[in-house]
Design a protein around this nucleic acid. Structure first.
Lengths: 238, 238
DNA sequence: CGCAAACTTGATGTTGCTCAAGCTAGGTGG
DNA sequence: CCACCTAGCTTGAGCAACATCAAGTTTGCG
């Protein structure tokens, strides 16, 4: 079950709003935007799978995706959650290196690889722009390595909550987050199990650090403490 | 204790051999190479530290470095081992995001950031080249996330040994590796402790998968099995 | 209102960590 | 040349954090 294409008319989206065009001139931005077509993807739907021919680059326009890799026995590692403005399929290889699935309903802008690659060579500043995007992903990946390799369950959860808050913050530091993905996704992102995620959240709730009104809605009752935990500055035992 | 600069004369190094120049034309390569200066670093010496002003980009010419991030209490995650041809300090931020230290004696080529950035804009194909390099680092980082989050100790060690073998292989698949770093570095790269690394190696030795002539020299007695382990295809219990 | 999926909580198990003690190899000085 | 000494490696015993297995409980949707 793959996504349906929808014509990328100017009625459906404002080209200039595409993140891929940030920092490009008006003409360059238009050139990039016009090779894109919009797609809608429903929750749970696969955009592409690890090992598929990498025929397109995508940009998330709205909604949230998960990217993951699997081991043969089904163990899953989510390498990232992508929200509006993120690019995927950019890592240059013949095949996709991970699977991309929609968590919420997602709108994507799809760029065919061959035309995309031509623009990388021809549009001034485009390669540099993609370098900046990729560098930032790399930075995030390195932070995630520190998290996966060396943080405790509680520290992982604290880091995750703050990351989600930072991402959604319309203004800046609203002390609440909506978690659009399930506990299982969170677990597979943090290298934990669903149960451990649930317990770590319960522990933070007990300690008065967070409030769980619904499973998906979390408020920070004590952001300082959450940040100390995330940074690994706190002895575990309060 | 920081590194001494050595003039980058053509006597000391062949410009064309710099990895940073691969795929660039002769003229472009010369332009890039001429802003570089060579440095020597002794084992254990720091090239730069996390949080330092990011004033330079470096290329490893010879030897091996470790990059790592620390938590306040000293927990360390090594995010990569860099050998000849790798770039570091490329992630564009005002400050370095990790510490770089020499494992062996290392020769570096140093590029001042301001001049380097100018070349990114001016030299055709340079940004694209750096994009390819960074994409590849990102791919490696995603593999490492899967390893850190979801692989067992034995699987981590198997993956690590094969990675090291692939890197050093002068020809292709010589069934032996030299491990230039200590057990502690290996542990901090794989999200384990020294003891667990030692035990996992002992286990593989017992099972006849590898041979440990000295701690640093490992032979693969059963590469297929090692690859199955690394891929996570094997039930742990033989 | 009822059902299925997701979340939470509890009891038990296992992997890998911690603490502690030997072992080995390489470098140094007698 | 050999003995010592130290740093790094290995091995062992006990432990803790997180996983697993197994019920409950809540949530959201038809």
């Amino acid at each position: 079950m793959y996504a349906d294409a929808v014509p990328n008319t100017s009625a459906s989206i404002n080209f200039a709003s595409l993140a891929i065009c940030h920092g490009l001139g008006r003409q360059a931005a238009t050139r990039v935007a016009t090779i894109g077509t919009l797609q809608k993807v429903v929750p749970g739907q696969t955009v592409f799978s690890e090992g598929d021919q990498a025929e397109s680059v995508y940009e998330v326009v709205r909604g949230m995706l998960r990217l993951y890799k699997l081991l043969p026995d089904g163990r899953r590692q989510i390498t990232g959650f992508l929200s509006a403005g993120h690019l995927l399929g950019l890592v240059h290889d013949e095949l996709y290196l991970y699977t991309a699935e929609a968590i919420t309903e997602v709108t994507l802008c799809r760029y065919p690889r061959t035309r995309f690659d031509r623009l990388v060579d021809e549009v001034p500043g485009f390669a540099r722009r993609l370098l900046a995007v990729t560098s930032d992903e790399l930075r995030a990946a390195q932070d995630q390595m520190l998290l996966l390799g060396r943080k405790t369950a509680t520290e992982k959860i604290a880091s995750f909550l703050l990351m989600m808050a930072e991402r959604h913050s319309d203004n800046e530091s609203m002390d609440e987050v909506q978690i659009p993905m399930g506990r299982n996704d969170v677990a597979d992102y943090l290298g934990l199990t669903t149960e451990t995620v649930s317990r770590a959240l319960a522990k933070l709730k007990c300690q008065g650090v967070i409030t769980l009104s619904t499973p998906a809605h979390i408020e920070f009752s004590n952001r300082d403490r959450l940040e100390e935990l995330a940074a690994g500055e706190l002895a575990e035992d309060f």
